[in-house]
Structures are given as C-alpha cells and as structure tokens.
Design a protein around this nucleic acid. Structure first.
Ligand code: FES
Ligand code: FES
Lengths: 136, 136
DNA sequence: ATATATTCCTACTATCCAGATAGGAATTAC
DNA sequence: GTAATTCCTATCTGGATAGTAGGAATATAT
C-alpha cells in the first residue's frame, strides 16, 4: 500500500548523486551506471526534473546535469511531485468533481479524512530535503 | 500520487454504512445499492473485511454483516490494511531484501527517509477511526 | 421438506498503466 | 566535421486493478 513508483526512486537516487557532485555536472550515462538505472529510462526522468526546474542541464559535449539549487533548498515533495504529480489520495481532492463511484455530493463523509491524509503526507515530504537524505 | 484503490474507498463506504446501522445487520446487496458499489465486487471486499475480523457475518436467510466492534475502536489503518496490506512505500521496509534496483546494501541512503514517511502515514491513519469519518 | 435468501468460494476477462526500449534530431565542444 | 551529449516521439509488454460469472454452502421461514 502506498508504494512509490520506480521512477520516483530512480529520481531520488539521481538527485542524491548530483548532490554529491557539489555543482559539477554529471551525465545521464554516468548516473545510470553508478546508480543502476536503465539509461534510456533515466533520460526521461532527467527531462522531467529539468521541466520542474530541479536540475539544470547543458547539451552537447561535456554537457550534463547539475542541481538547480542547494540540496537543502530542494524538498523531497518537489522531487516526488515532479515525477508523479501532487499527492492526491482520492481524485476529488483539488478538483470540483466527486470520486467516480460516489453519489454523495458535496457532503461526502470520507472527503475530510482523505484531505487530512494528504496534509500529513505533504507535511512530512515538504519538511525533508535532498540534504536530509544525503546525510541519512 | 499515492492514490487509493477503488477497493479501499468501497470498503470505507461499506464500513461507514454499517456503522450507521448501529449493530443491525445489513446485506451486501443493500450496501451495494445504497453506496453504488458493484454487487459482486463488494462480496469480495466484505470477505476480506471478515478475514481481518473487522466485520461479523451471518449466512443464510436474514443474514448479513455488522461491525465487529464499536466504530470508535476500528482504526482506518486497520480497514486500509485489510484491503491492500500494510503501508510500505518501498519494498525493502519490513523485509531484509533491498529494493530491486538498488545496489547500495545496508547503507542505502533513502531508506530512513521512506521509513519516516511510513511512520507519518501510519500515525495519521492509526489515529483516525470509523467514528471520526462518520462524524466528518 | 422445500423454497428462498444469503454468505462464501473459485475462476475468468478486460482494461489500464508503469516500466522499459528504440531510433533518431538538435546542440555544443574540440 | 566528428564525437558526445541532451532532447524528442513512438512503441512494446507484463502485471495489477476492477469487474464478471457461476455456483456451493448455509440458514431461515413456512
Ligand atoms: S467524493 Fe471523493 S472521497 Fe467522497
Ligand atoms: S534499498 Fe529500499 S530504499 Fe534503498
């Protein structure tokens, strides 16, 4: 239950790898080899991280990736959201529609419960940074 | 991200329905109609709830289901675990093996981070009961 | 006894999506 | 101009989730 996608785990390992480079670029191929992540799959991951402005990239020879900020300024929530979107236990949270099979309308009982879960998860993930993970 | 299975949502609605019956039995067919849950699918759900001792059942004519305890004594964590097992963001938690693609061995950096997430989720889900959901 | 209502059990199907792969286009350093 | 690299688009595949089908076991009412 609540298992995390391989993509997210890969992304975190990649970010940790970049953090330990302290500003120096690392190529996708290098990260792939060091962290045992399928090379072509990792390319897509790095692309998403770039899109969310969590990493900077340089193309061409001697190119590569580096963190877009200090490790202590990049929250784990940001990394995870870059992969799989925001935390949303049920689809009705953050949108006007109700969960498909629920006829309950605006007074659906479990809705607050799920909202509380989202807040608890966001609070934890938002409080942790890449640096916290690197330091163990 | 972290979306909950339809099965779990169904199970919670079924438990809430039973809670509002205050000890009187309700048949699966009744719950199915009231909560808009596919009848045959709900049977399997009730079976799991029974297996985890969250509901009692009576077979035959005039049979049905009732809560196995007071609503305030049944945690949401128990209901959710009955459906989809325990909260385990990464597969290495609670078992000796490492996550498939991770070569890191015992010193895997993200492991503590995921453990903390599990604790945060368990703490929230464990603190809420069926009664809390019924009362909104 | 028999009919009826119910839980309980096993198996099957369909659909969706995460994970992964393939091939190449654009860009930059030397 | 060549090699190294990011970037883009398309496609395949296995396994999980959601749902269906059919009936066996069990209890009640009449
Ligand atoms: S409508 Fe989303 S939980 Fe009820
Ligand atoms: S081995 Fe499970 S998170 Fe690293």
């Amino acid at each position: 239950m609540f298992s995390v996608s391989a993509r997210t785990q890969y992304a975190i390992r990649a970010m940790v790898h970049l953090a330990m480079r302290e500003g120096h670029t690392a190529t996708a191929a290098e990260i792939s080899a060091a962290e045992h992540i399928p090379a072509k799959y990792l390319e897509g991951i790095m692309s998403r991280l770039k899109l969310s402005a969590l990493v900077d990239s340089e193309r061409g020879k001697n190119g590569g990736y580096r963190l877009a900020g200090r490790p202590e300024d990049i929250s784990m929530l940001a990394v995870i959201e870059a992969m799989d979107g925001s935390v949303r236990p049920v689809s009705c949270l953050g949108s006007q529609t109700n969960c498909s099979a629920t006829a309950a309308g605006p007074s659906c009982l479990p809705k607050k419960f799920w909202g509380g879960l989202k807040e608890a998860i966001d609070a934890y993930l938002g409080s942790k940074t890449i640096r916290d993970v690197v330091e163990g």
